[in-house]
Design a protein around this nucleic acid. Structure first.
Lengths: 347, 347
DNA sequence: TTGAAAGCGCTAACAT
DNA sequence: ATGTTAGCGCTTTCAA
């Protein structure tokens, strides 16, 4: 590879001058500048990023840690994050953890090794809070509450859970089921929607069955098996709440078994990934604000990288109900939005 | 940050000794080793990756360039690639191009700047072949024919197109339509399936309408609009071939307009992403071997990075027909596989 | 306006 | 068995 020295020699100047031409900092006489540019051209020189990184102590890379990129929610999320980071001049490194603790540790190690400037942590995580805190480096939790000192960006799952419950109630359900929230032992804000869902639904006199959520998207058939099990154990279920994939699997099961949707069973999906747009009937869905989550995560992480203080401790963004034809709730509003909140960092 | 010098000083040894302890190369007396390890522990030292990278002239990062990560096919692909790369000790950088030439150029620049050790190019690309060749650096094309000297890994789209055609023929279609392959001006092996599809179908006396493929997955409604347009212009269509998303959109349109599938219209999807598993009726699908594509791409790129010669010029992997209930072809075989090929690099 | 030189933190060759 | 040193390629003082 040609180096800055080669260019300098070729142009008959010092390396510093070439550097000045490249960066635009400092004065360079017009004629020397042109000479240098010509040499750069002729030698087909491109500066070495690794050397720059070492000098500046920054890699310009942000890692995004997620359980599984193939999952539609995460791929849409990471895609949006990549766009935002790219706009700010950062590159995106993706890391699947497949819900394994070892992987998470490996990625924290990367941060310590200065391989990446910051981490957006969107993984199902079960490491001790201290692990993150002691780093004292740019980390933010995306829908994950990592530690008190680490900023969180998440959707308003409490509102989401309530909206789902209310939609099923409005649709006249008496006997509902949800996937998730039973034995989750991780501190994801996401599970709150299940607590709220159950509470609201029961306060309104409905029966609620809660099924555990399975991770591992690649094994798509776990969703179908879960759906089959639900209908086998509760043939009288008339309302279902679950993430897009559970909802889709239940819809599929119902339709292929002569159960009419929404007449016999209503379904509300949660997440709002693109796949919900390809179903028939249209899936009623609580949509997470994926672009906004990406935008805020990137905003926070880049501020931290730049060494700026950020005052927000938690950014909770509103979710939206998109009413389709898998529920029959009051058709007045086509979509509803709940308000989000921002909690200031107190320290 | 604490450096290797700090550790050396703290342990009362030279920096090289610390380096030796860390790398395991060279002899270190047991007692000094322990002293060094203790210092590392006490100072909470982690080696700086950027310095290592500079020294070794390698970043350990492979870039994967794709049009849009949110698209299920690409997210499953990148997810699989990340797993393979991770197993071999590499990190994965993702880059959306959104079909824009400028972005592609930017990423090639990254390669030249030694920011990444190699690139897996899975993007819709229209740059001149010379651009890639003159780099003389690790690049492989994933379903993209970049230049004669650049290895290609792709699915056997010719077989795929034929299999789709034959399945619709077996199912008794007379008047079929496909999405894609009309005015594609990029050299992707993928479009061959459309040529073959049309040829096979017409040889068997069917009528074939070809609709252009739209890029841009985020605008999911383009798929629905395409489906609506097809049914409006050709109400008598009885067979459809398109990627998963087109197939899903057509299925959705048909079902919501009282068109029975497979009785009135048969559908064959292409790609085989997870979403096809969540539809009702089960979608008949030509599945690309995503894991194998990922595996081969990674194998090739890492070999190139290690400076090894690779003899394969093209690796064409077999696709598989997964028969669902959107076609009614001879039910004997539940799935069929076509053989792939490997072309040796002649040079 | 420009060049020389001192690092950024690490590793490997060369001494000892 | 271990320390010293010379870079990896860049940027940025500091002189000139």
């Amino acid at each position: 590879m040609t180096t800055i020295q080669d260019v300098a020699k070729h142009a008959g100047v010092g390396a510093a001058t070439v550097s000045r031409v490249l960066s635009g900092n400092g004065y360079v006489k017009q004629t020397t500048r042109e000479r240098v540019l010509r040499s750069i051209e002729e030698l087909n020189y491109t500066p070495n990023e690794m050397a720059r990184n070492l000098f500046h102590g920054k890699s310009g890379i942000v890692a995004v840690i997620i359980p599984e990129l193939a999952h539609p929610f995460f791929s849409e999320m990471v895609s949006a994050i990549e766009v935002e980071l790219c706009n700010l001049g950062y590159q995106t490194m993706v890391c699947n953890t497949f819900y394994e603790k070892n992987y998470e540790l490996r990625y924290l190690e990367m941060l310590k090794r200065q391989r990446v400037d910051g981490i957006i942590f969107g993984a199902h995580t079960s490491l001790a809070a201290e692990m993150y805190q002691e780093l004292r480096r740019p980390v933010i939790g995306l829908d994950r509450r990592l530690a008190d000192t680490i900023p969180l960006v998440a959707a308003d799952h409490v509102a989401g859970g309530r909206m789902a419950a209310e939609e099923l109630i409005r649709s006249g359900c008496r006997n509902v089921a949800q996937f998730g929230g039973v034995d989750d032992n991780v501190s994801t804000p996401a599970r709150h929607r299940h607590y709220v869902f159950r509470r609201v639904v029961e306060e309104n006199g409905l029966t609620c069955h809660s099924y555990p959520k399975q991770p591992n998207y690649s094994a798509y058939n776990t969703y179908q098996e879960a759906a089959a099990r639900l209908f086998a154990e509760h043939p009288d279920v008339d309302g279902i709440f679950g993430t897009d994939l559970y909802a889709a699997a239940c819809l599929q099961y119902a339709l292929s078994h002569g159960i009419r949707v929404p007449q016999d069973v209503k379904i509300v999906a949660y997440d709002g990934t693109h796949m919900t747009r390809f179903l028939d009937p249209d899936m009623t869905t609580i949509c997470q604000p994926i672009e906004k989550l990406a935008n805020e995560s990137v905003r926070l992480i880049t501020e931290l990288i730049k060494g700026n203080e950020i005052s927000e401790r938690e950014i909770i963004l509103p979710v939206r109900l998109r009413r389709g034809n898998t529920t029959t709730g009051n058709a007045a509003a086509e979509s509803t939005e709940a308000a989000g909140t921002v909690t200031q960092l107190q320290q």
